[in-house]
Design a protein around this nucleic acid. Structure first.
Length: 722
RNA sequence: CCGCCUGUAGCUCAGCGGGAAAGAGCAACGGACUUCUAAUCCGUAGGUCAGUGGUUCGAGUCCACUCAGGCGGGCCA
């Protein structure tokens, strides 16, 4: 990282000069000035020092300039304006250094970091809101990897929750005509409908993504169930029955047996056997999960581990966490009042929660079941390696391979079902050892969860703290982001194309945005939207061809462009603003969009292609780079070089603030600089050998950098052509 | 009632440990394709950075208050 190095050396030089000249010690940081005529690095520190040292700021800057031992690589230093110290770098030198460095060279490294993201309830198809979570989480993972931090990616599966139970209730108890309608089949007896439902489960480990999958089927069933809960209070009792069965677990009952038992119960008119119901719930969760993996694979998003909530329960993780909380007095059972019979964690002692009217959070309900927050505490402790049994050993899951995936490059394509990396799920059998070993026990943990869950996330963190792990609590970060909502125009469009009526009030439709709701079936499914994006990209490619013939890899190109558009859309908006989804805006491929970035990479690659073809020249290698010494690099070329050098700084800042709009902005600026140069600095037609070499050198640095930024960092694939 | 977030061009948004002249894109208008592909580029126009007060050599950025909108404060997650 040549730029980081010279930046640090200049800062050191200034700090040393300040100390010897004025006896002043200070941590200082150099900025990159807004315009190149103001230099490449700047120190504004003389201004605030003026008061302390009782001297004019310009005078201080002059002193520092004269006294500092400027490192090699600094061409000249000036005092400017009211007292800025502007540093100009040796341009050809930095360019040569960049050419000598491997593009993906890492940084600091560090201890293992766990990122938990996606976490979609496995009871229906993913919608575009889930994509925001997954894309932000994935970019965090990629950013950490660019900084050479070892990362483990976990996708938590809430397979024993209410939402999965609701779909099971639908299959077992929704009136036959409604269930048949949701399934899209003729009305028949329930046992046949149950079979039809089970037949729709994915056959493969991870199926090819589509909008007619098992998760889409559940998408139809779920809102019908929630609607019936409201209409028929007795129906809600069914949910409790199912939840109770799920909690007991399926035992040894497998899918075939479950099907047999459920059919038998229908025919005999008897209650459903609990183990069969639990098995059905498990199949629903796993079936949806497999579909979600397929959806995320379209975006190049992969995981290392799928921790299941059922395993946290069955392996007694919660029991152990509960004992730990009791042992340190963090929880107590309420004997009276509104929380009578519940185990609560008191937050009164924590200043963070001082403002709450009711500073208690229920972890165990009066009926003895654990809340989600309770289970999350156990999970968080495990992630941090702090869940320790009475024998002093770390509690751990059993593990089993869930699917295999492969990805030839850093971005697309990601394929499941091929030899490659194992995606592992947890199991309740600790005899099943981890295939790769060593999951969990991260030194730092990020939970990518939407902002509405800030309160329970604070509770989880506080639990870690009161258990005596203040440092671990501080290393636990809730990566909060705002929801994705729909513009009224988008809702109307969905109503038109789907034929569904959401019956929203005029007041709702008058708002700036409308919240999506899986419960009501209001939303844009992820696969649906990706399909629309891909076909729009195909249209754009074809229309730009004129009447030119066929494109061999049309589908691949369209896929890359669709993914680029979507990922950039998610990255460029800062995380704490509601993303109001609008089709017209999301389908734009021009301007400040993913394809704009991709096009810069494609154009750059094309230059080298033509260069090889017409002049037999290629990239500028280290040997040829030596010829660049003393080259006159104009401001425009230099801007691009400098921007290419700033990756580490930008990524580190983005991770520190969890703000990826900074990354988006950085890559956009870089692409913009390139597109401008493209017009004014031709390479192939340039006959001057020296000038051509310089441009080749700058574009060599650019091609490498834009590839890292798009593919490695943002997960945006670069198409062959556009 | 309390807490958090948001308010920047007609629209959608950047602007991040205060720093040099407020930036993109879309929409509007005018220009550039026999060229390394125009998903691009150049130009014009468009702003009391919600408001008021404060801190500072310097505030869109920090502090206080006000206004407007959103989200939380569940034995849902």
């Amino acid at each position: 990282m040549p730029f980081l190095e010279i930046r640090t050396r200049c800062a050191d030089a200034i700090a040393t000069a300040l100390e010897t000249e004025f006896g002043h010690r200070a941590e200082l940081r150099l900025e990159v000035p807004p315009r190149r005529e103001l230099g490449d690095l700047a120190w504004p520190g003389a201004l605030p020092l003026a008061k302390v040292l009782r001297r004019a700021p310009r005078e201080i800057a002059e002193w520092v300039l004269a006294a500092a031992a400027w490192p090699e690589g600094v061409q000249r230093v000036e005092v400017a304006g009211p007292g800025f110290l502007n540093i100009f770098l040796d341009r050809p030198r930095l360019l040569r250094q960049l050419l000598a460095h491997a593009p993906a060279e890492g940084g600091a490294g560090g201890p293992k970091t766990i990122v938990e993201h996606t976490n979609i309830n496995p009871n229906k198809a993913a919608h575009i809101g889930h994509l925001r979570n997954a894309v932000l989480g994935d970019i965090l993972v990629r950013s950490l990897r660019v900084l050479a931090v070892p990362v483990e990616v976990q996708n938590y599966i809430d397979d024993t929750g209410v939402q999965v139970a609701d779909v099971v209730v639908g299959v077992l108890h929704l009136p036959e005509p409604e269930l048949a309608a949701a399934l899209g089949v003729e009305i028949s007896r329930r046992d046949e409908l149950v079979v039809t439902f089970l037949e729709r489960l994915p056959g493969a480990e991870v199926p090819a993504a589509s909008t007619r999958d098992f998760d889409d089927l559940c998408w139809e069933i779920y809102p019908r169930v929630t609607a019936r809960y409201e209409a028929d209070p007795d129906f809600a009792a069914r949910r409790d029955e199912v939840l109770h069965a799920v909690e007991g677990g399926p035992g040894q009952v497998d899918r075939d047996q479950a099907e047999f038992l459920l059919r038998g119960a229908v025919i005999a008119g008897e209650p459903y056997p609990e183990r069969a119901v639990a098995c059905l719930a498990g199949e629903v969760a796993t079936g949806n999960l497999r579909c979600h993996l397929a959806t995320m694979a379209r975006l190049g998003i992969a995981y290392d581990l799928l921790p299941h909530e059922s395993d946290i329960l069955h392996l007694g993780f919660w029991r152990q966490a509960f004992e730990m909380l009791k042992a340190c007095g963090a929880v107590r059972i309420e004997s009276e009042g509104k929380n009578a019979g519940c185990w609560v964690m008191s937050l009164a002692a924590s200043p963070e929660f001082a403002d709450l009217d009711d500073p208690d959070k229920i972890l165990v309900r009066s009926n003895g079941t654990v809340t989600y927050t309770g289970k999350d505490i156990a999970y968080q402790l495990w992630k941090l390696g702090l869940l320790v049994g009475p024998d002093g050993r770390r509690l751990d899951f059993g593990y089993r391979s869930f699917a295999r995936w492969t990805r030839p490059g850093p971005a697309l394509p990601l394929r499941y079902g091929e030899e490659g990396t194992a995606l592992v799920r947890t199991t309740s059998d600790q005899a099943e050892a981890s295939p790769s070993g060593g999951f969990g026990a991260g030194a730092r943990v990020y939970n990518v969860i939407d902002v509405r869950q800030s309160y329970p996330q604070r509770v989880v963190k506080e639990a870690v703290r009161v258990l005596g792990h203040a440092e671990a609590a501080d290393s636990s970060t809730h990566f909060a982001y705002e929801m994705v909502a729909l513009t009224p125009a988008a809702v109307r469009l969905i109503e038109q194309s789907s034929g569904h009526r959401f019956d929203l009030s005029d007041e709702d439709m008058g708002k700036a945005y409308i919240e999506m709701s899986g419960r009501r079936g209001i939303g844009v499914k992820a696969d649906e939207f990706l399909d629309v994006l891909e076909s729009a990209a195909e249209d754009a490619i074809v229309s730009r061809l004129g009447h030119g013939g066929e494109v061999a890899d049309l589908a691949d190109r369209a896929r890359a462009i669709a993914v680029g558009a979507l990922r950039y859309l998610m990255a460029r908006q800062s995380r704490n603003r509601v993303l109001a989804f609008d089709f017209a805006e999301a389908l734009a491929f021009e301007g400040d969009t993913g394809p704009y970035l991709q096009y810069s990479a494609v154009r750059a690659a094309k230059i080298f292609e033509k260069l090889a073809e017409r002049r037999g020249e290629g990239r500028v290698d280290v040997d040829e780079a030596a010829l660049l010494e003393g080259a006159a690099i104009d401001d425009e070329l230099w801007d691009l070089v400098l921007q290419c050098a700033r990756r580490h700084e930008v990524v580190a800042q983005a991770v520190a603030g969890l703000e990826f709009s900074l990354l988006a902005q950085h890559v956009h600026d870089l692409a913009q600089l390139f597109h401008k140069l493209y017009h004014g600095h031709p390479v192939v037609p340039e006959d001057d050998v020296e000038l051509r070499r310089l441009r080749r050198a700058v574009f060599t640095v650019f091609v490498d950098e834009i590839r890292v930024l798009l593919e490695d960092l943002l997960g945006i694939p670069i198409p062959t052509e556009m």
